[in-house]
């Protein structure tokens, strides 16, 4: 039987969360949780321990980079994908330094999202 995973989408835009949620519904997920800011992202991670996290960079209360650092501090094995429309050199460097698993540029395309999920969960999603 195919293994089912849990995902967490952190983005202050309801549109982005909805679009990403739809793309992930075509993947191997049993649950997809949503957080609307950086503070909630850290709380939701601790609560659900998702297999993969999609994290926006520009968010209220706490940026995605800050939330990523806290999550990685709590769980060094956390797989966090930075998802943003601002894929600047500085943002990318900050995300990599903080231990991001990957980076995906908005707007999301279904195939790109699912290919990334497959790569991140490699060996577990067959």
């Amino acid at each position: 039987m195919e293994k089912k995973f849990t995902a967490l989408i952190c983005d202050d835009s309801a549109v982005v969360r909805k679009v990403l949620c739809r793309h992930l519904s075509d993947g191997p997920f049993k649950e997809v949780h949503e957080a609307t800011d950086g503070v909630q992202a850290v709380e939701m991670y601790r609560l659900h321990r998702p297999d993969i996290v999609f994290m926006d960079i520009v968010m209220p209360r706490k940026t995605g980079i800050e939330a990523l650092c806290e999550i990685r501090e709590h769980d060094p094995a956390a797989r966090v994908v930075m998802a943003s429309s601002t894929g600047t050199t500085r943002n990318l460097k900050a995300a990599i330094d903080a231990g991001a698993a990957d980076f995906i540029q908005k707007p999301f395309e279904r195939d790109a999202v699912l290919a990334l999920v497959r790569r991140i969960l490699e060996g577990e999603w067959e």
Partner: peptide, 11 residues
């Protein structure tokens, strides 16, 4: 948001 994101990437 998206347009501005693309703008910052360009910059």
């Amino acid at each position: 948001n998206l347009a501005n994101g693309l703008f910052t990437v360009n910059c």
